[in-house]
């Protein structure tokens, strides 16, 4: 099975609240949603963010929009106004999640190509 980075198929946006960061991860369709559900677990995301996220990672599922919300605790060196990091607001956590690699069945790679042809959603 081909191995891809999430950036090739997914969208993601993050936000900060206190010392927490949440990352919305959006699958392009239901089949990818099911793959993400199996492969992009809270444990794996926690280990992906080793060195940045010190607390637990909680995953919430939104099958209605084929999305997951990852809430990362103790993730911002104290929080926006207390952090000495360059990215003190954690604006780049979502792009960092898009580095995450998953294995995808060959058949789905076809669909992926289709999405690239017609990505507008309209």
């Amino acid at each position: 099975m081909p191995r891809i980075q999430l950036r090739e198929v997914a969208q993601a946006r993050c936000g900060d609240k206190g010392n927490k960061v949440n990352i919305g991860l959006f699958a392009p369709d239901e089949e990818y949603y099911e793959i993400f559900k199996e492969k992009v677990t809270s444990e794996k995301v926690k280990s992906h963010f080793e060195g940045l996220v010190n607390g637990e990672v909680i995953r919430y599922e939104l099958p209605n929009i084929h999305a997951f919300n990852f809430v990362c605790m103790d993730a911002l060196d104290g929080g926006g106004s207390a952090s000495i990091r360059v990215d003190n607001l954690g604006k780049c956590f979502s792009s960092n999640l898009l580095r995450f690699e998953i294995e995808v069945p060959d058949a789905l790679m076809e669909k992926r190509n289709h999405h690239e042809v017609n990505p507008s959603g309209l």
Binding site: C14, G15, K17, N22, G24, F26, Y60, L62, A67, V71
Partner: peptide, 13 residues
């Protein structure tokens, strides 16, 4: 696609 990204921004549960 643009609207759904904002849907989860700074949301916990």
């Amino acid at each position: 696609d643009t609207v759904k990204e904002q849907m989860l921004y700074e949301i916990h549960d």
